[in-house]
Design a binder for these strands. Structure first.
Lengths: 158, 158
DNA sequence: GGCCAAAGCTTCGCGTGCTAACTATCCGCT
DNA sequence: AGCGGATAGTTAGCACGCGAAGCTTTGGCC
């Protein structure tokens, strides 16, 4: 009847464990799907983004993938090596490198359905509509609270 | 009022987004806290787990961290190099390596507050008890479904 | 006893992902 | 014109994280 700290902690542990599991597993599955086409998860993500935009600068791509510029450089190096994309220096701003998929890259992107999180989708669809709605609501609220917590401690890097 | 596929997709997207956000953020926070003590995120995670159990085999640690054995080997290599843990071959089963924190490792673990759990914990505690219980229940169910999906497709690797 | 599959770890090679330091370019300001 | 800060990418070094291949040990089974 009174709030028991132990139960709260157990819930916290279970929730974190579930989140880590779900995230890790989703990445693993994406990677596996990509592997069947001879590439890696991030490469598929990049090609899919490029498919939607036609051409992007490296920093624009990085922003959309939540990756730092040095990470993007390496990723693009390997994709260029494998003939999936081409680098082309911009005329207007010579600092900028524009990225465009090769025909091979476009073909691969087209061949891979948006499946990114297919297994997640199926698992989520297998929940009842009520559960799914509840999960959406609570998880959204939780993310918001975490965001608040983090903002209120931005001096974290002390 | 009837179940609309579009809503399902929206829910799926929101849930995935929230999970990715929560996971990424928890890692970032852990990493930041770890950095202040001169170590890395996974190292702190491992020390905290060891702190709770006293001693674990490499595979037990790997299971709790959702990491493969080859990953754990490397992690433990670096931690041992830095004097945080010790490897000790088990007597009962000579295949097993038991891991124990050094006094330095214990000190670091003790010096670091409950890490990312803390921010999550506060956010979770700020939810109502009902929401928290619901979240635990649904997330657990979801993880189970994902597990089933994955098992039923173990031929995924074509 | 001898064989053989499974379990626990390690090694190797690769692809991320980050920070720090560096180059080239651009742009605002004087 | 030219200085100086901001921006775009690259490079180097490190730590994960994984799969594949290999080693030793264990345990079941004939």
């Amino acid at each position: 009847m009174s709030p028991e700290p132990r139960n709260v902690q157990t819930d916290v542990d279970r929730i974190l464990e579930a989140i880590v599991y779900l995230y890790t597993e989703s990445r693993r599955v994406t990677k596996e799907l990509a592997r069947q086409h001879g590439l890696t998860g991030p490469q598929v993500t990049a090609l899919k983004i490029l498919e939607g935009f036609g051409t992007l600068s490296l920093s624009e791509l990085g922003a959309r993938m939540s990756a730092k510029s040095s990470t993007v450089t390496g990723l693009v190096d390997r994709m260029e090596r494998d003939g999936l994309v081409r680098r082309r220096r911009s005329r207007e701003d010579r600092r900028v490198i524009r990225l465009e998929p090769t025909s091979a890259g476009q073909a691969v992107a087209a061949a891979i359905p948006v499946t990114a999180m297919e297994i997640f989708g199926e698992a989520l669809r297998s929940l009842s509509g009520e559960d799914r709605a509840e999960l959406t609501r609570i998880l959204g609220k939780l993310a918001e609270r975490v965001r608040e917590q983090i903002e209120s401690r931005e001096g974290l890097g002390g």
